[in-house]
């Protein structure tokens, strides 16, 4: 390769390196934000759980058990699988590992003679499913790097509605759980039917710490009455679980992109080193060539 060509290639690799480094830094900043938001959700979820416990004890145990979102359907004919992916790629295995886990799970479900209904968040997941001719019942896109409660509540409304109406008999969610900036793990959780334990927490904690006002049950006012407020509170947990998964997935997405961009930047420096070496070699070869020619010319004169 001539010196000039190598020089051009070095310049273009340097530019790529600059871009990937910038993307790495942007992802790192967004990661911190997403991580913080996932953490902020916890006190809200805990408070919601306390209120639900209070409403449940006021409404009586029967009311809670009778709520449709807690019911296991007698016959599970149709299983909804919600794949949580990203709108953008360039994040290593982030999207593909969710898709793979989703398709594997779908095969399992179908092997058991049940039907699969795909739901997906993120353009990557939606387009991959469509590419494989898997119909997507509902898709949600445009927010995966910064999901809000509005998005979660919209998805929750669709899923709870379809579940209670019997169009789907179980809802599973597959997402990238956030372990650390460098580590994401594929998690599969059952969203519906809701487990009563996830709503009111484990019984020991409930018994050990009676809620404020719980001891004066008769004195507490309820607007609307306890059974109605309980029926509104319990489905909120679907929304909260969803939001938590979306936020963890967003943090994981930024983490995965940060890692992917870091190794891209490292690769770029490695390529630059190799190319610089090649350029030096080419330059040296040219110099050697010229010296040889000068020496040969001088010898010819002698």
């Amino acid at each position: 390769m001539a010196q000039r060509d190598v020089k051009n290639r070095i310049a273009s690799v340097q530019n790529i390196g600059k871009i990937t480094r910038a993307m790495e830094m942007v992802s790192a900043a967004r990661l911190r934000k997403a991580e913080e938001r996932a953490r902020q959700l916890r006190p809200y979820a805990d408070a919601l759980r306390k209120m639900t416990r209070q409403a449940a004890s006021a409404a009586g145990s029967g009311e809670m058990q009778a709520l449709p979102v807690l019911q296991t359907h007698d016959e599970e004919r149709r299983v909804a699988i919600l794949l949580v992916t990203a709108d953008r790629g360039l994040a290593g295995a982030f999207n593909s590992q969710i898709l793979r886990a989703g398709l594997e799970r779908a095969d399992e479900v179908e092997a058991e003679g049940r039907e699969v209904a795909f739901y997906a968040t993120g353009r990557r997941g939606v387009s991959s499913l469509q590419f494989r001719n898997k119909p997507v019942i509902e898709s949600y896109t445009g927010f995966t790097d910064a999901p809000s409660v509005t998005h979660a509540s919209r998805i929750a409304d669709d899923l709870v509605g379809a579940f209670v109406d019997g169009q789907i008999d179980r809802v599973e969610i597959i997402y990238n759980g956030y372990v650390s900036p460098l580590v994401q793990e594929v998690r599969r959780e059952t969203l519906l039917p809701l487990a009563a334990a996830s709503v009111v927490g484990d019984d020991d904690a409930a018994d050990a710490a009676p809620e404020d006002g719980g001891g004066h049950k008769a004195l507490v006012e309820y607007e609307p009455d306890p059974a109605e407020i309980l029926a509104e509170l319990v489905p909120e947990f679907v929304q909260v679980s969803l939001l938590r998964a979306l936020l963890e997935s967003a943090a994981s997405e930024h983490g995965a992109r940060m890692t992917a961009m870091r190794s891209a930047s490292d690769n770029a420096s490695e390529v630059i080193d190799t190319l610089t070496l090649a350029m030096n070699r080419a330059r040296q070869a040219e110099i050697t060539q010229e010296i040889m020619e000068v020496v040969a010319g001088a010898e010819a004169l002698n």
Partner: peptide, 13 residues
Amino acid sequence: IGILARHSPLLGR
């Protein structure tokens, strides 16, 4: 609803 100090216990939507 206007809540002042020592309002009676309430759980509302």
